[in-house]
Simulated scan of single mutants.
Amino acid sequence: MRIYEILADAARFAASRWQAAVAQGREEEKRLWSYVGESRNFVHMTGQVYRFEDYLEGLAPGAPPTASPALSAGKGGFSRPAVELFLEVLDEVPEPEQKQHVRVLIALLDFIADTGQTDDVEDFFINHQQYAPIAVAQFASRDEAEAWLMGVAEPPSPAYILIGDDYHQLWYMREDNTRGMYRDYVIEPIIKALTAKGIPPGAPSFHSRTEAEEWLKSHPAAPEAFVVIAGEYYLAVHHKRLKRHTLHHVASALREWEERKRTVEFGESREAGAPPAEEGE
């Protein structure tokens, strides 16, 4: 679990420098600190934390940090200037702990470059608000997903997968090789927010799911769009990395989200020792 602490500490350092850049009106520097923050989010969300840990351990001890050669060929519209900024900051900060945070951030961008993910991260930085929550794999059934989870040497962690149309959270702990998954409610609150003011009229209508899926291949949602299938509203969600859509029945999703909230609230009230609310309160 040490790598999670290392990344969290480095992220807090980056956030403090971002705040300083905002206060002093240094817009370009602010953008670069934001970029490294989203780079860390990308590595975390795609389940590459242990992979980055291995990369860190493979660096030559005591070697001065440098920009990856993969960033020297004109790639990295944000990565290259970010590394150059961090190299300057490395010389400026006085405390050994601060220097270590900067080294981790440089290594993070080098890791992304050396693994060929710079374009993906820069696209994520610019456009992530237009994408659905990242899922790294999709399975037809839970049995299929569990067979994969137990069979792979080191699953991505933490990371979302899709089982059918539903999000599940994967977790894996390298220290004792434990792993598991659980249903997570990621899309449901988004559907709640999107429908709060009513579903806009004019949603395309289809007789069957197959017909809707075929239409979505040439009309991808960006990242989501309402459609009507057999008279019922669905939210079509585009998963760019997986090159597919999920379809979420709106009425069922809203009902499941309310049930989930009640379950969580009940559990919290039990832990706090408060009596559960009476029906109708």
Rank of each mutant, 00 (worst) to 15 (best):
A222F: 14
A23R: 11
Q138R: 12
Y233M: 00
A82M: 09
Y55F: 11
G198P: 08
A153T: 14
T66Y: 12
W148A: 01
L108M: 13
W215V: 07
F42L: 08
H245P: 08
H248S: 04
G25D: 01
R209G: 06
H128I: 00
A63R: 13
I134H: 13
E279N: 07
G198H: 05
P155F: 06
W215C: 06
E122W: 06
K240Y: 10
A221W: 00
S79F: 07
A73R: 15
F124C: 00
A8P: 05
P158D: 04
Y50K: 07
T66N: 10
K243S: 10
E88N: 11
Y182V: 11
K243L: 10
L194D: 10
P201Y: 06
T210C: 09
D120E: 15
P69E: 04
A82L: 09
E258A: 13
I134W: 09
I199P: 04
P275T: 04
A222T: 14
H128P: 01
R260I: 11
K217Q: 15
E256A: 12
E144T: 08
Q129A: 14
Y167D: 03
S68Y: 00
A23K: 11
R2M: 11
P276V: 00
W171H: 08
L242Q: 02
K192D: 14
G116Y: 02
M181F: 11
V104Q: 03
L194Q: 13
A132Q: 06
S252I: 11
D184M: 10
G77W: 01
L235P: 06
E279V: 10
E188M: 06
F125I: 12
L56M: 09
R241E: 11
I6Q: 12
P156A: 05
D54M: 09
V83A: 05
S34T: 12
L109Q: 06
S79N: 08
T246R: 03
V152E: 05
F111E: 03
P65Q: 06
S141Q: 06
H207S: 13
G231C: 03
A82V: 06
P61W: 09
I229V: 15
F206E: 00
E146P: 02
K30N: 09
P276I: 04
A272M: 10
